[in-house]
């Protein structure tokens, strides 16, 4: 029992502590994502029917042999939904990685340099945030062609500013903190200060923002493919499946609602992992 509590001094090796524990929300998100990724990886070994194998059993309703029914080409919808995890999550990660690779250095530069460089970068960030990202993505994807890599590149390109803004804010906040001042007084070079003090603090937020970027990467790529700019057939792609299934909504609702629900669940998982409790 201590009677007087004081704030603990900044830890010497802050990396592990800064990452912290997961909240309830984040745990739920992590659970969803883990299940999805495991299913996605194991998809070929689960004994599902070939997702791209057409058959004569077209447009069947849900049944014991076809849990979600079959589509207009007689392909098993359930198998296609499970296999669709792969391309969606891969594109999502692609968007997240590109958004991070672009956003983090730009944010670090803006936050650390301040002055004119900061103002210039902030101007660009504000511009991007306000722009209709989906419209841009539609145009660019239409031009460059909708392969999985292109979609990830395009969406990553329109989504880096949030990451940059977050990192910039974090850097500015931390660089004002006392112990950075202390480190500078002790003669640390700017690079050393960034590695030792700024990065560990920011990394937790960056990880969260990465997860959010993945969520909205999946969200947007599904929207693109719903609008007809999905990965080329026959790769199972959720947005495209919804697009194709909508016309049979009254007859076989699972054909469009199941892939739609898969998108929502995946987005939800990554969003929960990256969001804070309120």
């Amino acid at each position: 029992m201590t009677t007087v509590s004081e704030n603990r001094a900044p830890s010497v090796s802050p990396w592990r502590e800064k990452l912290g524990k997961l909240s309830v929300r984040q745990s739920i998100g992590l659970m969803i994502i883990t299940v999805l990724i495991v299913l996605g990886i194991l998809a070929p070994y689960l004994g599902l029917s070939d997702p791209n194998q057409s058959s004569l059993d077209i447009l069947q309703r849900a049944s014991a042999s076809h849990w979600f029914g079959t589509d207009a080409l007689g392909r098993d919808v359930f198998s296609r939904v499970i296999h669709g995890i792969r391309v969606s999550v891969l594109i999502g990660f692609g968007v997240g990685v590109l958004g991070t690779v672009l956003g983090v250095p730009i944010g670090l530069i803006a936050g650390y340099a301040r002055g004119t460089i900061d103002l210039f970068i902030l101007q660009i960030i504000d511009l991007f945030v306000a722009l209709p990202a989906l419209i841009l993505a539609l145009i660019i994807t239409a031009i460059v062609g909708s392969t999985a890599i292109n979609i990830a590149l395009v969406l990553g390109f329109v989504m880096w500013p949030q990451m940059a803004r977050l990192v910039r804010g974090q850097v500015i906040f931390i660089r004002e903190s006392v112990y950075v001042e202390a480190a500078r007084a002790l003669g640390g070079s700017p690079g050393w200060i960034i590695r030792q003090h700024i990065l560990p603090n920011a990394i937790r937020l960056v990880v969260a923002q990465f997860s959010i970027t993945v969520a909205f990467g999946i969200f947007s790529s599904a929207s693109l493919s719903f609008l007809g700019l999905g990965v080329p057939p026959p790769t199972p792609d959720w947005g495209t499946m919804v697009r194709e299934g909508v016309q049979f909504l009254a007859f076989s609702p699972l054909m469009s609602i199941a892939p739609g629900a898969a998108v929502t669940l995946t987005v939800l998982g990554f969003y929960l992992l990256g969001s804070k409790d309120d």
């Binding site: 969200f219 929207s223 919804v242 909504l249 609602i257 998108v263 939800l268």
Partner: peptide
Amino acid sequence: VIGITIPNFMLGICLIF
């Protein structure tokens, strides 16, 4: 949270359904 994470097309077809 659902509002943020559900794509418009998914909510749209659910409402139609």
